[in-house]
Write a protein that binds this DNA or RNA. Structure first.
Lengths: 366, 366
DNA sequence: ATGTCAAATGAATCAGTGC
DNA sequence: AGCACTGATTCATTTGACA
């Protein structure tokens, strides 16, 4: 971690200027909730003749699509510079702006990992009945370039989702009730995001101790969740009033215990199996060099174990994973489940059983 | 409708060339399911739609984005020309291409009505657990320009959704089972869309007799649903094999009866009342000039009826609607429901009852 | 305290017809 | 095209008043 990174603070000012003063490749995760450029047309009234308190803040106004594009190109490029090569960027938006931002991200070399849909359980209806209820917002999740390594805590997310793989559609309520910060009954910020949304983002794409940056900090939801989950955070915000709101809020956040933060990361998934190289089976005497392993348990496809832990078959030589992949036509393969050995009773058993036996032995790990 | 519009046919060829031969402003609805960003297919397209044989991987990421943009700009512009000013365009895509298309639509002057998320009940899992399950596709719905009139059958959609306003998130299964067209066990088309999706699109944004065009016709789902719902359809498709599949499919489609098609359109909408000016109540003798009407049934807010059918209160003088609007602080108001008169028993009744009485009298309409 | 009902409200590109 | 006039339209939650 960079020594001169201002951690766990809110930096006041224009996000582009401040980002350009931060060290490059120093941040693990960026969550950006930029102005949406809503361009509201006129007053909107409910059928019960009350007025809708719409977002009409000055910070959301741009003169043209071109002006909005130029603004976004600047802050996205500045984010890219401070992001580690293994870091990822999230952006949230609506149809007013998200297509421009998505295209810009691709133009600037980012690589899409997912677009995630936040489906609101309780959106504002379309009062005039002239369109579909606008019931969602879109989150973009991109890595810095194609092929970049990145963090995705698959098991934590799976656990968060009742042991089903987490999908790209997230059903969550809007920020309301006690969580919504109000002063004298007025919203402290017109677009405060729910903590549940950030909880999911940070759990998925960062680890405890990582640095999470939010260039449009607002009421500080990103910081609040980062602090709770024991991530470092950096907030950038222009408006002094929002900074006061966020600082008061952050002072009240209690971080989870270290164990709980790690537990939140691992979720209820089976304890993460330690990595164990295939060669350990040879070292442990569970397999012998020269012994045959059978692809998918078929005796017709026999490979020989080499002393270095590689397999040979028909002149091919590769790891258990690589050879299985080649035999399957190139699909990624888990060699532990692809290869079978003959046990003392001449029965074929999957080699993963040997790995499990070794892992269960507390002294077995390398 | 244009006399020289080739209705209920599949036109073979490049969609841009064919669109440019069709009459302008002649089509009510376009549904487009364009090829995804060709990064995935490892193909390059020149701006003139000819395919570049990409023999290796050394093509440039940015060149490919630009080529895809050029391709999309052409077909979208061609669609815009044939679309009536009151027509709307739908485009479906995934994160690979939808952001480029959304931005292009805005650049070309289209106006967003909604982005709609098709959430798949049964998506393909992410087998390697390195991302979220990509469980949705995005549909864009745009009118030709800001402020354009367009068709949205609010009541039909509300009826489709158990009398709740239809939202922008649609939960529908992917096309599978008997609906999926197969030849010798092979999918006849790799991206056949479910008819339920098109059913909702056409029900929402077109009327029986309208002309629906699909520039990437494929297996013909758009045509099949259009025929069923008694819309005219035009399909454009390059591949002869897909055309054969679609023609065979369309021959088997039975249109709904006219009544069913109209019922599907109207849903449970209230019968449309004829328009009746307030002055007719005076002419019919149901109200007298000088009589008092009470705003929202409160005797403290009494307006006087003038002989010209306007109301006066506190020096204000306006129509029943205009005065109700002013009294409510500017909200649009339905005067028929806002004003009450005193009946022969000194009870206050809403003046809409008088309108209904006059409308029920078949001779009452102006 | 507890229950019931009315009022308030949330990132919104929010009207249609006829002259 | 522009103007004047008519009149159709909302869901899930939370908050607060009041019994």
């Amino acid at each position: 971690m960079c020594a001169n990174l201002p951690l766990d603070q809110i930096l006041q000012g224009d996000c582009v200027e401040i980002l350009e003063r931060l060290p490059e490749k120093s941040v693990d995760l960026i969550f950006a909730d930029p102005p949406y450029n809503l361009q509201l047309q006129k007053e909107l009234w409910r059928p019960n003749q009350t007025r809708v308190d719409a977002v009409d803040d000055d910070w959301d106004h741009y003169d043209s699509l071109e002006a909005y594009d130029a603004f976004c190109r600047q802050w996205i490029a500045a984010c890219r510079r401070v992001l580690k090569d293994t870091g990822t960027l999230w952006v949230i938006g609506s149809y007013h702006n998200i297509f421009r931002i998505g295209a810009l991200l691709q133009d600037l070399g980012f690589w899409f990992l997912n677009d995630v849909i936040w489906i609101k359980t309780n959106p504002m209806p379309n009062f005039r009945g002239v369109r579909f209820t606008n019931a969602h917002e879109t989150l973009l999740w991109v890595s810095k370039f194609k092929g970049a390594r990145y963090t995705f805590n698959h098991h934590a997310l799976k656990a968060l989702n009742d042991d089903l793989q987490m999908r790209s559609d997230w059903l969550l309520p809007i920020c309301n009730g006690p969580e919504r910060i109000r002063h004298n009954g007025q919203k402290a910020h017109s677009t405060q995001k729910p903590e549940a949304l950030l909880y999911r983002v940070l759990t998925a794409a960062s680890c405890p101790g990582d640095v999470v940056l939010d260039p449009f900090f607002g009421s500080g939801t990103t910081g609040a969740v980062a602090k709770k989950l024991r991530r470092h955070w950096i907030g950038i915000e222009r408006e002094a009033e929002y900074i006061r709101v966020a600082e008061e809020r952050l002072a009240q956040v209690q971080p989870l215990s270290e164990e709980d933060a790690v537990y939140a990361l691992e979720g209820r998934a089976p304890a993460k199996t330690r990595r164990l190289p295939f060669g350990r089976l040879l070292e442990a005497g569970l397999l012998q060099p020269g012994q045959s392993l059978y692809y998918r348990g078929e005796r017709a496809q026999a490979a020989q174990v080499r002393a270095d832990g590689r397999l040979m078959l028909d002149g091919l030589c590769a790891s258990i994973h690589g050879l299985a992949s080649q035999l399957s036509g190139g699909a990624p393969a888990n060699g532990w489940l692809a290869w079978y050995y003959e046990d003392e009773n001449q029965r074929l058993c999957v080699i993963d059983e040997l790995r499990q036996r070794l892992l269960a032995d507390s002294h077995g790990a390398a």
